[in-house]
Design a protein around this nucleic acid. Sequence first.
DNA 1: GTACAATCGGAAGCGAAGTTCCGGTTCCGG
DNA 2: CCGGAACCGGAACTTCGCTTCCGATTGTAC
Lengths: 202, 202
Amino acid sequence: MSNPVETPTEAPAPERLQRADARRNRDRVIKAARTRMARDGLDTQMEDIARAAKVGVGTVYRHFSTKDELIEALAFDRFERLREAAEAALVIDDPWEAFETFIRAAARIQTEDRALSEVLTSRPDVMGAAAASVGMLEITATLIGRAQAAGVVRPDARPEDVPMLMCALAGTFKAPYASTDRYVGIVLDGLRPSGSGRTDLS
Amino acid sequence: MSNPVETPTEAPAPERLQRADARRNRDRVIKAARTRMARDGLDTQMEDIARAAKVGVGTVYRHFSTKDELIEALAFDRFERLREAAEAALVIDDPWEAFETFIRAAARIQTEDRALSEVLTSRPDVMGAAAASVGMLEITATLIGRAQAAGVVRPDARPEDVPMLMCALAGTFKAPYASTDRYVGIVLDGLRPSGSGRTDLS
DNA sequence: GTACAATCGGAAGCGAAGTTCCGGTTCCGG
DNA sequence: CCGGAACCGGAACTTCGCTTCCGATTGTAC
């Protein structure tokens, strides 16, 4: 999906067609792009990335033929991390704790990556594709389903509510006075069933 | 604040210095800008706006020397509408109903104006200035304070949480599967005190 | 060690959108 | 009804960032 050497026919073997320096530069580009975009957002310029990677723009374009392609690659990468967080939460026994842990982890991942939050609020296509590719909906369905079965999440909550609330979280980053923790706390409490306790918003 | 004729000294009287057609065109520009930007967002092009106003781009620039200035004018206008909604809610006796009415009205105003929601998620400066100019924080403080006094909103909620949650709402518009009503319902429930009922998410 | 293909670097090309400019037009006071 | 200031329209200009191109360089097979 990201290796440019793949040709539909006879793809399996030809892996060492890429020169060593090429692979090295590709890695540097990805790393630089991740860092810069996490800090400056999606409108980081290609030249900035190239400079940060100690490489020419031409090299960036040999590995990613378009800025969008690069953004997509990074987005998929971040969603992969979200999936890992979900799987880590899945092994927690207590259903509510598992759910809360995942939500908070997802929130943190977003907090630390401005590019991700921008994709969420301004690139529905990329966001949808990336989410689908890691099976986001299935995972949140499991997590939320378990919690509902245990009676710790309101029964009318739906799996799709989770990505929605995550996208909404992205909207808070630019808000004056906003606090990610308070947002997460309020939303978590809104997802609890009637009569539950409250999160400490501190 | 929006009349270009104002000179600090001797400003009071000279009001009819603007020709009739000038004022008419200015109105058409504002109206066109409002409509187009509400539909297409902040990156609506100046030429689109000019065309929709049946006017040349030059004319648009005579009234708003910059695209940002135009955006700001529209944003202030929208916040004025938010203030009106808040005041309308303020006359409702039941504290919770007043609060909920305002939140839902604010959500609807955003739903109907993509430009507003984009300002909220990508223009902290404009958003902050506009919010301050209509005294957003004071109004939400009153609304939320009344509800807290009546015990229908959690005591640890803060006035600033409201604009934060509104900015977050803006983040949902581009999300796949998102439903504004469900978002509002979940957030409202998250703001209720421990042991309260739940909104029907239908 | 040599040759050639893959790769690199970054200057130049390009398209898009905001902004400027000025000849022509329109309003308004006298 | 006239003169001129205010105003209009939209072609042209400017800026900015993505993308392309090609001569120079570097890795690798023989």
